[in-house]
Design a protein around this nucleic acid. Structure first.
Length: 127
RNA sequence: CUGGAAGGGCGGAGGGUCGCUCCGGGCUUCGGUCCGGGGAGGAAAGUCCGAACUUCACAGGGCGCGAUGCCGCGUAACCUUUCGUCGCAAGGCGCAGGGAUACACGCGGGCACCCCGGGGGAAACGCCGGAGUGACGGAUAGUGCCACAGAGAACAUACCGCCUUCCUCAGCUCGCUGUGGAAGGUAAGGGUGAAAAGGCGGGGUAAGAGCCCACCGCCCGGUGCGCAAGCCCCGGGGCACGGAAAACCCCAUCGGAAGCAAGGCCAAAUAGGGGACCUCGAGGCGGCCCGCCUCACGUUCUGCGGCAACGCAGAGCGGGUCCCGGGUAUCGGUCGCUUAGACAAAUGACUCUCUCCGGGCAGGCUCCGGUCUGCCCGCAGACAGAAUUCGGCUUACAGCCCUUCCAGAAUC
RNA sequence: GCAUUCGUAGCUCAACUGGAUAGAGCUUCUGACUUCGGAUCAGAAGGUUACAGGUUCAAAUCCUGUCGAAUGCA
C-alpha cells in the first residue's frame, strides 16, 4: 500500500472543532452510532471545505495522563485516515472508558469499523 | 555476600519517517510554505500552609472573627548603581555576589514525658549515657466538666479499721480483758476508682496528722554562666496549688477582603447603570452605616366570586429632585504570560540499535544455591501531564545507585 | 480557582453538650402458621462508626492529616 498519494496527512489547528456551539450542533443535529470504544457523531457541512474533527474524553475514562493519551491517539487516527473520508465532514468522537485499556492498533480498528459502518468514505478503495 | 532500617540522588540513551505547538528569519496569490531553534515532573498531583503580584476598601481606633503560641539561626520568588555572558540596542540569562521579607518551613539548642542501659539507694526516687515523642503561653482571671464504682471527686470524705471516754453484759488473778452500743478524735492501713488532696524516713502522739525535723518535690527571692530559652549554687517559706484549655475562655502576637475565572484595553450588539440630598414601616439573613428575602402598606394588571364596590388568589413595580456618562460581557479577542507557555488546552504514532528490569523456553557449566549464552513476551514497562509565579507540607511511586547503622553467613 | 457540606449494618437514617452494650425501619436467614406461596408472628445474623494518628481515665462525638462523594459561586 503506497503511503497515501492523495491528500495531505497534516492536521493543523484549523481542522479541529473548538467551539462549544459547534459541538452542541453536531451532537444534536448529526447522526450518531457507536462501535467498540468509540461513539461517533457526524454531519455534512457543505459550506466548509475541509473535514474537521472534535474529540471528547470525559473524566470517567481515567486520570489526566490516560485522557491525554486517548485524545492524542484519536487525533492521530483521524490524521492518518482523513484523506479517505468525505470532504466537508464534521466529526465528533466521544471516547468510552474501555479505550484506556486498548492499544493504538485496536483504537485504529475501532475507527475504521465506524467509518465503514457510517459509509462516509470518500471513494471506494482501488482494490 | 545476603536481608533490613534511616538519609540522599536518578527516574533510560541514541537515531529514522510522518505529525503538533511557540519563537526568529525568508518567500507569499495572505490560504500557506521553507529554514533554524525551544517544548512537562520529582512529585507538574492534593490545593493543606505561606509569600509575591493585581483589584477593591481604608484618618485613627474599637467590637467581633480567624490563626499562631520554648529559644536562636537560616532560606524563595522579588530588588539590584555589583560581576560575568549574549545582543547593534532595548533587554535577557546566571550552581556568581549584595540586599529584603515569612507567627510557611528547615537546622541546632533548651525543657518536659516515656523507654532502654549503667551505677547509687532499704524504698520512694534522683544521677549519667542513648533513642523516641511533644498544638511546648495561662488551670492562683473567671464559668463549667470529671460518667460508673466508691463512705467521700475539688468547699474534700469517716464504710471497714485505729484510738479515747461513757453505758450494758460476761470472765477473772478485782482493775484489767472481751462482746454489744453511744459520743468524739484520726487520713497511717484496707477497699473503690483513671485520679483519694505532696513522697519517704525519723521524732511525736491516746491513735494520728508538715504537728516538728532531714532529703526530694513545690513556691518565693538572690549571685553567677549563657545572645536567649534556661542551667548551677545559695537563702527563705512549711505545703497551699488534682486533671483537662485538641470545653468555654484569658494573655501576647499576627491578620483589611478577594483572587490571573485577579485585573487592564478593544470590536460588535443591546438599554440600562452610578453618585449626592430629602423622605421611608416590621422581621430575618448576609459580620457591624448597605444590600437581599419575607410580611405589612401603596399601586398596576390578570383570574374567580355575574358587573361596580368589596374580598380571595397570582404576577409586576416600590418615593422625589439634581448630577455623571457609562454598564454588562459567563469557552469573544488581546495584554497579564514567561528562552514550556496553551485556552476543546501543544510532547504523539510507527520503527531500529544499545543497555536496565521482570517472566517463559532451549542449551552449556554446576559445589544443585545458582550462573552463562541464545530466542521470545511484557506499551522502557512505577506514580503520573505544566496553566500567574515562588517557597514549603502531605500523598503516590516499578526499578537502580551512594553513604551510615543493625542482623546473619563465609574467609583471614 | 474559591467556598461549603457529608462519609455509621446490604439500603434509608438515629445516637443530646465525650460516659461505655452504637439503635430503628426495610432487606437477608431460620422457625411457626399454610396443601404450597404471599402476608403475619417469633428469633437470629449483619459494624475496625471511611482510613491513620493524637488529646482524654474514656472518642461515632474533640483536634490534625489522608481518601472518597456531593453541592454552590463567578
Amino acid at each position: 500500500m503506497p503511503a497515501s498519494p492523495q491528500g495531505s496527512q497534516k492536521l493543523p489547528g484549523r481542522s479541529r472543532i473548538k467551539e462549544s456551539r459547534e459541538y452542541a450542533r453536531i451532537k444534536s443535529h448529526g447522526r450518531r452510532f457507536g462501535t467498540g470504544s468509540l461513539l461517533v457523531n457526524w454531519m455534512l457541512e457543505p459550506s466548509c471545505s475541509r473535514s474537521r474533527v472534535g474529540i471528547i474524553v470525559s473524566r470517567k475514562v481515567g486520570n489526566a495522563v490516560t485522557r491525554n493519551l486517548a485524545k492524542r491517539r484519536l487525533r492521530e487516527v483521524f490524521r492518518k485516515h482523513q484523506s479517505q473520508l468525505l470532504p466537508s465532514l464534521q466529526l465528533v468522537i466521544v471516547a468510552r472508558p474501555s479505550i484506556a485499556r486498548k492499544s493504538f492498533w485496536e483504537v485504529e480498528q475501532d475507527f475504521l469499523q465506524a467509518v465503514k459502518t457510517a459509509q462516509i468514505r470518500s471513494a471506494p478503495s482501488a482494490s
